[in-house]
Structure formats: structure tokens, C-alpha cells
Amino acid sequence: MTDIRYLAPRTLDEAVGAFAASQGAARILAGGTDLLVQMRNGAVRPGTIIDIKKITELTSIEEAADGGFRIGAAVSGAALAEHPRFGRVWPGVLEAVNLIGSTQVQGRASPGGNLCNASPAGDSVPALVAAGAVVTVQGPKGRRQVAVEAVPAGPGRTNLGPGEIVVSFTLPPRPEGSGDAYLRMTPRTEMDIAVVGVGVSLTLRDGVVAAARVGLGAVAPTVLLVADAARALIGSRLDEAAVHAAAAACRAACNPIDDKRGTIAYRTRVAGVLLQRAVAIAAERAGRV
């Protein structure tokens, strides 16, 4: 008989203490929309389940005085959508988080769980990479900050150390003239896994791209930051040549699998197409006429 324990600590220190003490036998529970499925099919058998949703810092959303946002790692997609300001400042990040699963799944699924589950096709991750989100991690050795794209290590694996918990995402203040977008390609419009996902964030000044970031999902073992695509866009007026160069950079970054949902050739081609479409949406949101 399995002797599983359930803990719901109220402080991060307790959670980290219990997680570190378990020596790898514990699992963190946020929304459970990955963990419970994996427990049910026998892929994961935790000795202890540590529910982090009673810790305020993990379930709160704060807008800082400078306009930056801090999102608790265990905030549900539904709660993020209800925030009065978040979706206006980061519509692309919100649409990416809200693409995760059904209404029911949205009631529970969190961006922290999406990141730590480390699926290459996690929908929120490319948008958070494009946003330049920084992850705060707490473990037995204290706190550290790391870029979102540095967390996944491969399918189902992260670079988190033993006992480390993702606490929150910090999104930088948004300069005037900024916009972001996330698009994914799925065979069905709902309840499906991305074949390609592209997140784009732009800042325009007098029609010229002053800053850009591009995140690419489902086409490599981890979600990627495509610096070459951003470089192709920065300094341009988003003319055809610049956007085509950015699309080519996305295609070049692809190292996808071949499966029933999409061949290598298809995924690679679609990565370029989605980049162009996401750039157009982000530019419109940035206020380009």
C-alpha cells in the first residue's frame, strides 16, 4: 500500500524545507492538471505531495509602481484573466496562458506548472520568453533569479536544483509603443497540443523597432529564445525583408520531432508563417497604424 502524504504549507520556507527533506520523493502541486494525470497513469509516484496554493506569494498578482508585473507561479489562468490590468499590458502572455486546456483546466492550470512540466509545447512559455520574464526560484540555498528560457532542460526536465520551487514570474515595465502576441498551430482550435507556438514582443519608436524578443515552442526539445529573429527585426520598420529574415531565423532555429501531429518539414515551415503573423499582431497592439 502506498503511503502518500499531502502537505499544504502556508509559507515558502516550510514548502522548500519539506521539498528538500524529501530527497526527490516529493512533488510540488500547483493546479495538478499535469501532475494528477501523470500520477493516474503511473508515470509519477510521489511519496509526498506539497500543495503550494496556500502560500500567498505563489497565488497573487501584483502590478509594481514602475508598471512591471509579478505573477505568482501557481496563479490559475482564470485568475490571471480576471486581473483588471494584466491583459491590457500583456495581451500576448494572457492569450498564451488562456490557451491551456478547457475552461475547467483554466480554473487550475498555472504558468509555473506549465514551465516546470517542461513540455516543449507548453503554450505559456514562448510568450513568457518573448516578454523577457524573469523567474524567481527559492531553494534550500536561498533565492535566485533566472530567465524563463533557462528553466527547461529537455522534455519533462528542468534546470531547477534539488528542493527548488518556482515562486513567481517578473515581467518588466512596458515602454510606450509596446505590444505582444502568441499564436499556436493546432489541428483543432481547442483542447489540442501545439505543433508550433510563437511568442513575439515588440517596442516601436516612431515606427522603428527599438526592442524585440521572440520565443519559439514545440519545435525543439525545449522552448527557445530566438535571438537571431529579434536581431532581424530590431532597427527595421517591419518591412517585408526584415520580417522575412526573422521568419528565416525561426525556421533555422527549428529542430523538431516528426510525428502524427506534424512532420519536420511542416513544423519548420509553419514556424516562419506564425512568426510573421505574430509580428503583425504585436505591431498592431504596439500602436502602429
Partner: peptide
Amino acid sequence: LDGRLVCSCLVLAPE
């Protein structure tokens, strides 16, 4: 669950 629609198969009873 507290007014939010969820799948009860994906919520642990102690939660």
C-alpha cells in the same frame, strides 16, 4: 470549487 469551474478528477480530495 469556490465558484470556479474545475474537473473534480483533477483535484485532490485533501485540497
